[in-house]
Amino acid sequence: DKPVLAIQVLGTVKWFNVRNGYGFINRNDTKEDVFVHQTAIKRNNPRKFLRSVGDGETVEFDVVEGEKGAEATNVTGPGGVPVKGSRYAPNR
């Protein structure tokens, strides 16, 4: 398990590439950019086929120490709701 650095952090999605399945979230508290992989998205938009977060979307997440620095995990919308997802992700 990766060491946990912070829990229930709010941030804004800087960018997310649906095809490659990753992007970055900017933390509201430290203004640090945190890597996010599609496997870290815990509550996906049920209408979306692929797990994703949308550019500019506000999300809540935990921060863990990854191999290359801070990574987001347990990604949801604020308060644990499903994320909205990327407009580029296909609908079901």
Rank of each mutant, 00 (worst) to 15 (best):
G80C: 03
V63L: 07
P46C: 07
R51C: 07
G79C: 11
F49E: 12
K48I: 00
L50E: 08
Y88T: 06
V64Q: 07
V75P: 02
V75W: 00
T39P: 02
G69I: 01
V81Y: 09
P82H: 12
L50H: 10
A89I: 08
G54S: 10
P82K: 04
F49S: 14
N44D: 07
K48C: 07
F49V: 13
E71D: 00
I7V: 13
A89R: 08
K68Q: 12
S52M: 02
P82E: 08
S86A: 05
R47I: 11
V83R: 01
G77R: 05
G80W: 00
V81L: 13
A89M: 06
T76S: 10
P82R: 06
E67S: 14
R51G: 04
V81Q: 14
F61A: 01
E65Q: 15
L10W: 06
V83G: 03
G77F: 09
E71F: 14
P78N: 01
P78V: 11
S86N: 10
E60D: 01
F61V: 02
E57Y: 00
P90N: 10
S52Q: 02
D55E: 15
V53Q: 01
K84P: 03
F16Y: 15
G85F: 04
K48P: 03
E65G: 11
V13I: 08
R87C: 11
V75I: 07
G66N: 08
V81A: 15
W15R: 07
A70H: 14
E60A: 09
K48F: 03
D1E: 15
G79Y: 09
V81R: 15
S86M: 03
T73L: 14
P46S: 08
D62N: 10
K48L: 03
T58F: 08
S86V: 04
G66K: 03
P90G: 11
G11A: 06
V63P: 01
N20D: 11
A72M: 04
A89C: 13
I25N: 09
K68M: 09
D62K: 00
D55H: 11
T73P: 04
T12A: 07
A70K: 13
E65V: 14
V75D: 00
T76N: 03
E67M: 13
D62S: 08
S86T: 05
A70R: 14
V63D: 03
P46A: 07
F16S: 14
G66P: 01
G23D: 08
K68A: 08
R92M: 12
N17K: 06
A89D: 06
A89L: 08
D29E: 04
D33N: 09
L50T: 09
G77E: 04
P46W: 08
G66Q: 04
K68L: 10
R92D: 06
K68W: 07
K84R: 13
D62Y: 02
R47C: 12
V9I: 11
P82V: 05
G85I: 02
V13L: 14
L50M: 13
R47G: 13
V59W: 00
G85P: 00
N91Q: 10
V75N: 02
P78A: 05
P46H: 07
N28I: 10
F35L: 07
A89K: 08
G21S: 10
E57G: 02
N26T: 10
G69F: 02
R87N: 12
G56C: 06
A72P: 01
A72R: 00
G85L: 02
T76A: 05
G69P: 01
K84L: 12
G54I: 05
G85C: 05
V4A: 12
T73Q: 15
V53F: 05
G54C: 11
G80Y: 02
E60G: 04
N74K: 06
R92K: 13
V63T: 01
D29H: 15
A72C: 08
G54M: 11
N44A: 11
G85E: 03
R47W: 11
L50N: 09
N44F: 09
V59Q: 01
E71L: 11
V64C: 09
T76F: 00
N45R: 03
N45Y: 00
N45H: 05
Y88V: 07
D29N: 09
E57M: 02
N20T: 11
N28Y: 13
F16C: 04
K84M: 12
K84N: 10
E60L: 15
N44W: 12
V53A: 05
S52R: 03
G79I: 02
N45V: 01
G69E: 01
A70S: 13
T58D: 07
P78G: 02
N91T: 13
P46M: 07
F49D: 11
G69M: 01
G56E: 04
R47N: 15
T76G: 06
G79H: 10
I25F: 10
N74P: 00
N91Y: 13
V59L: 07
T58R: 10
N20K: 14
A72G: 03
P78T: 02
E65I: 14
E71R: 12
F35Y: 09
V63I: 14
V81E: 12
P78C: 04
